[in-house]
């Protein structure tokens, strides 16, 4: 039973003022099983982010279906779920991570991670403890814990984002170009982070533009150009 099944998905953007409609993506099919990591590759502009943002409903999907096997609602089509259902899923089941930090201003890294837990109804003590664990786990310098993340580097923002998303232990985590514009050293760190997530059994959908990075990391690689899997790991056990 797949945890996520994307069928004949397509997305257009209409800009009324220019009287233009653009087809961002069309005819996307893929599915993944619990615990799998699927990587999506393609040129910039090929619609990778569009797919991810549509799954998270930051974009409103307009064609096809995105079936997600929710713990709370059973199988649900994310393209038709109500806004309140989406908010619930974002809070408890589906995480989204990019390099861009879109958070409450005037909030420290530590508070941000704690809020992720508090909004799920965790107690304050537990939130404090788990937030620290997450910040240690994703190797954010303790000097940065009690500062505002505005001035963080790309890599630091990303790791904070990952900490905020993963403390919730989401069932499905969407990674939107987490390595773009990072140097080799930071990329290596991100890779280790993803390996950790995978070992914990998180189902991941990630988009990347460098194939090298994904080697040995993904169970499946979906190519936007051919619209097929170009790589599938044969045995599913992860060493």
């Amino acid at each position: 039973m797949p945890i996520l099944e994307v069928n004949n998905f397509g997305k257009r953007f209409t800009i009324h003022h220019l009287n233009k409609t653009m087809h961002a993506v069309e005819q996307i099919h893929f599915s993944l099983k619990p615990g799998e990591f699927i990587g999506i590759i393609g040129k910039s502009g090929s619609g990778k982010s569009t797919i991810l943002k549509s799954i998270y409903r930051t974009y409103l999907p307009d064609q096809g279906s995105i079936l997600y096997d929710s713990k709370r609602f059973g199988t649900i089509d994310l393209s038709k779920a109500t806004e309140r259902q989406m908010l619930f899923l974002r809070k408890y089941e589906i995480g989204y991570v990019s390099q861009f930090l879109n958070v409450m201003p005037r909030t420290t890294s530590r508070q941000l991670v704690e809020h992720s837990l508090l909004e799920m109804g965790e107690s304050e003590d537990r939130a404090r403890m788990e937030a620290e664990n997450a910040l240690i786990h994703f190797e954010l310098d303790p000097k940065l814990w009690d500062t505002y993340p505005n001035t963080f580097s790309g890599g630091e923002k990303l790791r904070l984002n990952i900490a905020m998303a993963t403390v919730k232990q989401p069932r499905l985590l969407l990674l939107d170009e987490p390595t773009a514009s990072l140097d080799q050293q930071s990329k290596k760190k991100v890779r280790e982070v993803i390996e950790k997530l995978k070992r914990n059994g998180t189902t991941l959908v990630g988009i990347f533009h460098d194939i090298e990075f994904m080697e040995g990391l993904c169970d499946k690689v979906y190519d936007m150009k051919t619209k097929h899997f170009i790589y599938e790991k044969e045995d599913e056990c992860i060493v």
């Binding site: 953007f13 009324h16 930051t58 409103l60």
Partner: peptide, 22 residues
């Protein structure tokens, strides 16, 4: 129009909302 706040801001559907967001 109504929707999730980030969706209204990133993928507004109606002409007026687009004008507002842009």
């Amino acid at each position: 129009e109504e929707g999730l706040t980030d969706q209204i801001l990133e993928d507004p559907q109606r002409a007026y909302t687009q004008q507002l967001v842009y």
